[in-house]
């Protein structure tokens, strides 16, 4: 019996080891896989409302700015630009192409440049930046672009199950390998808890509060944005607090009928965290 158990454990361990060796540890590869393929599939099959020029310019701008930052700073010393940073930059551009709808040809390029530049400009230590690049570009876009040319919406994805499954599949891998799944879990737990409580305040149903976050945008946000290993805590208790805080702030903003609440909530929480780290430098790993 013990021998059988041992064999099973050994088999499981072998399988896990094989998976562990097969799937890269760095979450950005899954971000890259998710967003670039999603943009491509949507472009080909959903009729993504982005022009070829917008898509191309966004990628070029992101990679260019990444290159400049890479050369001028020591943030990614020891890494290869083309094998590492270029993919990261392209992922950030793709994320914006998925989440944002803008009419200007150059808008995505500007936003992609802002997203990438943010990594080099706003840091909390040598390796980590303060704000998630895509989130930073979106909130700054909300601030600087007139509403006539900029919006955060992904109508093309809303009719299909595919984008949700697509993002979740890559998101599970990203959070598993990046050891940040606790953030997503705590985010959804707080969202569920809040959605159960809020009907007593708003008069709406549980689903009314919860379900908007399980659409395509919500999935990108929950699995691939708030779990960004470079802008989120590494230790489990802090991860739980981080994920739950984002959900809580978002629900409060929603109650106030604030649009784009999740993006603003994430930005508020990361800003508070940045301030916290400023005050308590020894907790910088949190």
């Amino acid at each position: 019996m013990i021998a059988t158990e041992s064999k099973i454990m050994h088999f499981a361990s072998t399988v896990y080891q094989a998976l562990d060796n097969f799937f890269p540890r760095e979450g950005r590869w899954y971000l890259f896989g998710s967003h670039l393929t999603l943009v491509f599939i949507a472009w080909q099959f959903y009729g993504l409302q982005r022009t070829t020029e917008q898509i191309a310019l966004a990628y070029v701008a992101a990679i260019l700015v990444e290159y400049v930052g890479f050369r001028l700073t020591n943030k990614y010393t020891g890494r290869s630009f083309w094998k590492d940073r270029a993919f990261s930059a392209a992922s950030e551009a793709a994320g914006l192409l998925v989440l944002v709808r803008a009419s200007g040809t150059e808008t995505y390029a500007i936003m992609a440049a802002i997203a990438v530049a943010n990594k080099y400009l706003f840091r909390i230590d040598d390796q980590r930046h303060a704000f998630n690049p895509t989130n930073f570009a979106i909130v700054l876009g909300l601030l600087i672009f007139p509403k006539t040319i900029f919006d955060v919406r992904s109508d093309e994805f809303a009719l299909h199950l595919h984008p949700i499954l697509h993002v979740v599949a890559f998101g599970v891998l990203a959070t598993w390998r990046g050891n940040s799944w606790v953030i997503t879990l705590s985010y959804f737990a707080m969202l569920a808890l809040g959605s159960a409580i809020l009907p007593h305040v708003s008069g709406e149903s549980f689903l009314f509060h919860f379900a908007p976050e399980i659409g395509a945008i919500g999935m990108v946000f929950a699995w691939l944005m708030i779990t960004d290993p470079r802008t989120t805590p590494r230790e489990r208790p802090w991860q739980i607090l981080f994920g739950a805080s984002v959900a809580a702030v978002m629900l409060v903003l929603r109650l106030g009928e604030v649009f784009y609440a999740e993006f603003i909530a994430l930005f508020i929480v990361t800003t508070i965290r940045t301030i916290w780290l400023l005050r308590v430098p020894e907790l910088r790993s949190s």
Partner: peptide, 26 residues
């Protein structure tokens, strides 16, 4: 490092304040 952090915290705060001012109710 502290200077980096200070800049980030300041920029983040300014953006949050800007958002709260600029994004009134519908």
């Amino acid at each position: 490092l502290r200077r980096h952090n200070l800049i980030s915290a300041t920029v983040g705060t300014l953006i949050v304040v800007g958002l709260l001012v600029k994004l009134p109710k519908e």
